[in-house]
Structure formats: structure tokens, C-alpha cells
């Protein structure tokens, strides 16, 4: 029974991590749009390439934030949460 409970904890942590990384879709689309717009701008005004590139990188990094939040949550779920949850379970069972 205990093995089953621990198995459920581990499996659900992995599932949760996978679900959290769905958030990777948003930054992908957003950064794609930003880069497309930057390419257009450079095509129209090739002389402003330096400014456009640095601004684009900056914007991309800011847009990436939500994806990174999801990444941090996923990493916590995989590497940190199982140990804590199993400890709680073992304490509750009394072992």
C-alpha cells in the first residue's frame, strides 16, 4: 500500500511538471512574433540593425519570463517536491 502511495506521489509530480511546461507555448509564439517584427524592421531600415537587434533581444528576454516561471516550477516538482511529500507521507503513516 505504501509503495502505491509513493508511486502516486512520484507519478503526479512528474505529470505536474509536464503540465507546467505547457506554459512554454506562450513565450515561443511571442518571441516568434517579436523576431518576425524585428526582421521586417531590419529589412525596411538595414542601417538600424544594431538598435533593433539589442531591443529585440531585450524584449525576448522579458517575454521569456513566464516560460521560466513554469520551468522553475517544473524543476521544483521534479527535484524537490517528491522528497518533501514522501517525508510527509512517511510521517503521517508513522514510519
Amino acid at each position: 500500500m505504501l509503495e502505491l502511495a509513493i508511486g502516486i506521489i512520484l507519478g503526479c509530480c512528474a505529470l505536474g511538471a509536464g503540465c507546467a511546461m505547457i506554459a512554454g507555448i506562450g513565450p515561443g509564439i511571442g518571441e516568434g512574433n517579436a523576431v518576425a517584427a524585428a526582421c521586417e524592421a531590419i529589412g525596411r531600415q538595414p542601417e538600424s540593425k544594431g538598435d533593433v537587434t539589442s531591443t529585440m533581444l531585450m524584449g525576448c528576454a522579458v517575454a521569456e519570463t513566464t516560460g521560466l516561471y513554469a520551468l522553475v516550477i517544473a524543476i521544483l516538482l521534479i527535484f524537490v517536491a517528491p522528497n518533501i511529500l514522501v517525508d510527509i507521507l512517511l510521517k503521517a503513516v508513522g514510519k
Binding site: 521569456e64 516561471y69 524543476i75
Partner: peptide, 16 residues
Amino acid sequence: VSMAFRHYGNILSGTV
């Protein structure tokens, strides 16, 4: 918070 997580997350994800 977002500044700290952005820097940390990028470097850590590269390592992972």
C-alpha cells in the same frame, strides 16, 4: 522576483 528568476532560470536550464 522576475529579475532573479529570469537570470537563475536561464543559467540553470542551460546546465540541466
